[in-house]
Amino acid sequence: MVEAGHARSALERASLLDLAPGARVAVLVRQGAELQGESLARAEERLMARLQAVGGTLSRIEPAMDEDLLEAFERQAAQDAPELVIIAREPRGRLTRLLGDTPEKLARHGRVPVLVTRLPAEAPYRRVLVGIDYSENAREALELALRLTPPEAGPLDVLHCYDTSYALVLHQEGASAKQMVDYYRRRASEADAGLRAFLQPYRDQGTDLHALVRSGDPQAELEHAVREQETELLVVGKHGGHGLMHALLGSVAEACLRRAECDVLVVPQAVSRH
């Protein structure tokens, strides 16, 4: 569900993606929105031309003004089977800060990858960062990022954030300074080896990947890496979540949607099965 100005932004970004053969793209548009204007028409024409060149299709989801967005999305998605949903970031009011806006709700409940645009769509993505936790969901996120990134973009940044919270237990149990240092070094070494092993199959195929290993809070480290690497697109997997706290606070992926200063692609679990 996108206002006219937002629809233009989403279409412009979609037209710049490195689309795979047979790609299916859906654009969410609020029913009754004015989808006119020369710049919007050009963006839609560019996207259609790109999709036609790869044998792809474009679908437009237009829920009624009084229709629940998620219900409309699920209904249309079941019919068109889109591989990617693109939606621009909306202005946020007080209520949406608490309960989540349209992109966050789609990312939370949807079964299709959601690309939320924030930056002007002026060129294909060149600086892409993928958050990795070694899960199958993370592998799907990495592979989708590779599909959407042009080969000439250069190395893809891949960040893994590891946990060192057990250090607090060691400290409370009276661990020596040497034991603490050994623990931190061991965790760093394990994380580095784990990321190398995770990425090796892609490197064996000649994929250019830049590995980043950090310790601490994943959300904070992703935000820091986005600024440090001048990231244009952040790609994160979304794990399932339940309960009141998740409903209010959401996952790391949803937090990135709220706070990241770049476009964000959220990849749900097992997208290949939907």
Rank of each mutant, 00 (worst) to 15 (best):
V54H: 03
K105T: 14
E67I: 10
S272E: 12
E104R: 12
V271R: 06
A145C: 05
A88G: 01
D204L: 14
E228R: 03
F198H: 11
D66T: 06
R203Y: 06
I61V: 14
E122T: 13
V128A: 06
T102R: 08
A26D: 07
E71D: 07
H246W: 14
D101C: 09
P268F: 05
S9C: 09
D204V: 11
G100V: 10
L195E: 03
G174Q: 09
L156D: 03
G237M: 14
T117P: 00
A138V: 03
D263E: 07
E230Y: 07
C256K: 04
L47P: 00
L106K: 07
A14Y: 00
H274W: 08
Q219H: 13
A81W: 02
A141V: 09
C262G: 06
S39Q: 12
K178N: 11
L257Y: 03
L115S: 06
L249F: 10
T117K: 00
L146P: 02
Y134L: 13
P63K: 01
A26L: 04
V29D: 02
D80H: 05
G93P: 15
R259F: 13
Q229L: 12
S39M: 15
Y202D: 13
G237R: 13
S189L: 08
V213H: 02
A43V: 08
G5C: 06
L17W: 01
T57G: 13
S135L: 10
A175F: 12
L99V: 09
V128Q: 12
V25I: 03
L84Q: 00
